[in-house]
Computed example of a mutant assay.
Amino acid sequence: MTDGTRLTGITPAEMSSEQRAVYDAIVTSPRGASSRLDADGSLPGPFNAMLLSPAVGMALQNLGSALRYESTLPDLVRELVILLVAGRADSAYEQYAHEPLAREAGADEETLAELRSGNLPTEVSDEVAAALGVADALLGWGLDDEAYAAAVASVGEAWLFEINAVVGYYQLLARQLGLFGVLAPEGER
């Protein structure tokens, strides 16, 4: 059983060949080492649900991997955008999974506490503030022409595209985690 309350973990022995391909892609990706397999070999967090529909799961796995390891966003910017989404969605698992990555990238505890509460941090660099401002607007479902022009001026079109993709992907994961009742491990929130 995974750390979720609604979805039973799918063990390697129970997987179809299509599910096993998704599983292998997740476990062997750069994030595989940090995926923390459950004791029975099933995937934790949002990854177990990706096995329910292997074609969609593989696409999500590939998108998540591209956002984490191939985008132009600096690690700190990406992780803080993820944590803003997690804070707004009250996604304890995403907070548990990404706060250590944000710390490694240079985030301080005050910034993490503000994001955990769903608030924009007050003491960050101009670059981080600009990126989080864009993410905040996107979480409100978009940018009017004036806000779009300001976002392009502050972060550029490529970052705007990538921030939008990070916001959308992690909103989807937060919804998936909520749907299947996936919680942070005991004592981790």
Results as ranks from 00 to 15, higher is better:
2 T>N: 14
6 R>L: 09
7 L>Q: 09
11 T>W: 03
15 M>I: 07
19 Q>S: 04
19 Q>D: 05
21 A>R: 04
22 V>P: 08
28 T>N: 15
28 T>K: 15
30 P>H: 08
30 P>L: 04
31 R>D: 11
37 L>Q: 10
38 D>I: 03
45 G>P: 10
45 G>V: 10
47 F>I: 05
57 G>F: 00
58 M>Y: 03
59 A>F: 13
61 Q>V: 01
63 L>Q: 00
65 S>M: 03
71 S>A: 08
74 P>T: 14
78 R>W: 11
79 E>P: 01
80 L>S: 09
88 R>K: 15
90 D>K: 07
90 D>L: 10
93 Y>S: 05
95 Q>M: 12
98 H>P: 05
102 A>T: 14
103 R>N: 02
103 R>D: 14
107 A>Q: 09
109 E>M: 00
117 S>Q: 15
117 S>W: 13
124 V>T: 10
135 A>C: 09
136 D>N: 08
143 L>C: 07
144 D>P: 15
147 A>I: 01
150 A>Q: 14
157 E>A: 11
159 W>M: 05
164 N>T: 13
164 N>P: 02
166 V>A: 11
166 V>T: 13
167 V>L: 08
167 V>G: 11
169 Y>H: 12
171 Q>K: 14
173 L>I: 04
174 A>F: 02
176 Q>G: 13
186 E>M: 01
189 R>E: 05
